[in-house]
């Protein structure tokens, strides 16, 4: 129990410093939301001053930050200056798209990375060379290149999938997600398959596997119980990390596929110096990362009896 409390406390400290850091960076960065509010039109100095006062842009740094923090502690993420809307509602409206994108991508990464890596790991010769070649190409191709290629082939030429947008319900939503999910997860899937490949290889050469082989167990049984099971720990770590980086990577994918997710909103919020909105989204992402990490920790617990006993 104390461990858990300590851990939560630590998380809160990490959260505080990350939001403080981001606030400071946004504050120090040139430009302010007035530019975004004004757009290409011009305003009189009076209009500009009025806006500055309205949004407290001339208040001292700590006053602004503590005002924001106090609001958050009371459950109020504030209002977006640029969009004139509650930050909480704006994020809430966009969470489903990002969760669907990241969730499906994680699933895709785990299935593809795991089966492909294991398959390559247990076979010898050509298979593993082919695996090496393909995964190297996928790992080193930036997602925007993959995206453009996928859109061109499957949306423009073949017309199988839509080129943009996120659909209007879950079914069309998933259909719209096919290309973004593939584009987003291919590098991570390739990476996971590499990790799986080497840990399967590593396990295959371990003594307990040789012992099991000499005792005449079937190959399938050995792979399932002695190889894959032990190789799972590094795979879960990598999959967990991937889910976290996917949230960051989703900003690019969401822009290319015109998806109304949290990532593209964050990019715009930062470009427009929309403090409350950017902070709110970062807080959301931080909480998401914390939750994923907690989930991965729990998985270790389930997968490896030694970790269970150590506690």
């Amino acid at each position: 129990m104390r461990r858990i409390l300590l851990r939560i406390l630590l998380l809160l400290v990490v959260l505080f410093f990350s939001v403080f850091l981001v606030y400071t960076l946004l504050y120090l960065a040139p430009g302010d939301p007035i530019g975004a509010l004004l757009g290409p039109q011009s305003a009189t100095p009076g209009q500009v001053q009025l806006l500055r006062e309205q949004y407290g842009l001339d208040d001292p740094f700590f006053e602004r930050f503590s005002g924001w923090l106090w609001g958050v502690l009371q459950g109020d993420l504030g209002r977006s200056m640029v969009y004139q809307q509650s930050v909480f509602n704006m994020i809430l409206a966009r969470v489903p798209t990002t969760l669907l994108l990241v969730g499906l991508s994680t699933l895709f990464i785990v299935i593809i990375g795991f089966t492909w890596g294991t398959r390559a790991g247990i076979s010898r010769g050509a298979w593993s060379n082919v695996h090496l070649a393909i995964s190297t190409v996928l790992l080193s191709t930036p997602v925007f290149i993959t995206s453009v290629g996928l859109i061109y082939l499957f949306a423009v030429v073949l017309g199988w999938f839509p080129a943009f947008g996120s659909g209007s319900d879950l079914i069309t939503g998933i259909w719209h997600m096919v290309l973004p999910v593939i584009a987003l997860s291919l590098p991570a899937a390739a990476y996971l398959s590499r990790i799986t490949y080497s840990s399967v290889r590593g396990e295959l050469n371990r003594e307990h596997v040789e012992t099991a082989e000499s005792r005449g167990f079937s190959r399938g049984y050995i792979i399932r119980t002695h190889v894959v099971r032990n190789a799972l720990i590094p795979m879960v770590t990598v999959a967990g990390n991937s889910a976290v980086t996917l949230v960051a990577g989703s900003a690019i994918i969401e822009t290319i596929f015109a998806l109304d997710g949290v990532g593209s909103l964050l990019v715009r919020a930062i470009l427009q110096s929309d403090f409350a909105l950017a902070q709110g989204i970062l807080l959301f992402i931080a909480v998401f990362i914390v939750l994923v990490n907690a989930f991965v920790d729990t998985l270790y617990f389930v997968l490896d009896p030694r970790i269970r006993r150590a506690r």
């Binding site: 453009v148 061109y152 423009v156 943009f164 290319i256 015109a258």
Partner: peptide, 18 residues
């Protein structure tokens, strides 16, 4: 009215007749 900021997304959306 779909808001599409990326130019290649726009071009693809139009040429694919989405």
């Amino acid at each position: 009215i779909n808001f599409i900021t990326d130019e290649s997304t726009l071009a693809n959306g139009l040429t694919s007749e989405s």
